[in-house]
């Protein structure tokens, strides 16, 4: 494949004569090159995550664009709890981030064939993810019911609920998939040879966690 470069100091010309029909012995063809080692699923999940990053990137860029541009109160600092009770959101975030560790341990357990350990860590991941969702729910309840901020209140409301909401939506999707796997595992339908699929699900979960770090930084730290 690199021959074009090396043979063409000037114009690489070769004359072909189809009628020649001469029975010159075939040169041995060049050795076959190696194929990519990644499986279909892995590439697909990487691409899926890439497109998700493009999606969240747009929402985050929009959020950043509108920081400080709002013309109607309430402003983020009046509503978001970081300045008042930073522990709440940080607490929730720690739960979400910790779940990333548990899912790694779960995948390792499955690889080692330890079903009980897999169920435990996988279950813990689900519980921690659930805690995060519940925490988000309480935060939203406080904002909507007590502060009276919703999508239509002002641009901040639109941006906040869209960005955080889409993230929570992804967490929910993740939890549904995780729960499905957990149930299947209890039924004995997740043997260690399925490790790659389980591992790919954990990649998606890591993405959901990783994007939260960015969302958190933008919404609760920069945006305040």
């Amino acid at each position: 494949m690199t021959r074009t470069g090396s043979t063409s100091e000037d114009i690489a010309v070769t004359t072909m004569s189809t009628q020649s029909g001469s029975s010159t012995p075939l040169m041995p063809p060049p050795a076959l090159s190696q194929k990519l080692k990644w499986s279909n699923g892995k590439i697909a999940v990487v691409l899926l995550i890439a497109s998700e990053i493009a999606f969240f990137g747009t929402l985050i860029a929009t959020y950043i664009f509108y920081i400080g541009r709002d013309i109607n109160p309430p402003y983020p600092q009046d509503v978001l709890e970081v300045s008042v009770a930073p522990l709440k959101v940080v607490f929730n975030s720690i739960f979400l981030l910790a779940s990333s560790i548990w899912i790694v341990l779960a995948v390792k357990a499955l690889a080692a064939g330890k079903k009980a350990a897999f169920l435990f860590w996988w279950g813990l991941t689900i519980l921690f993810g659930l805690e995060f969702l519940v925490g988000t729910g309480f935060e939203w309840y406080g904002m909507i019911v007590e502060d009276g901020v919703w999508m239509g209140t002002n641009v901040f409301g639109s941006c906040f609920y869209t960005l955080v909401g889409f993230h929570a939506f992804h967490v929910t999707m993740g939890l549904i998939i995780l729960t499905l796997i957990w149930v299947l595992a209890v039924l004995g339908k997740v043997p260690p040879r399925q490790i790659e699929k389980v591992d790919l699900i954990s990649w998606y979960w890591h993405f959901v966690d990783g994007i939260w770090i960015v969302v958190f930084t933008v919404v609760y730290i920069i945006g305040n």
Binding site: F65, R69, I71, N72, M151, G152, N154, V155, Y161
Partner: peptide, 14 residues
């Protein structure tokens, strides 16, 4: 549909 203001120039959208 939800009354957000992303592109609503009358309410500070761009």
């Amino acid at each position: 549909s939800l009354g957000a203001h992303f592109f609503d120039t009358q309410a500070g959208g761009s």
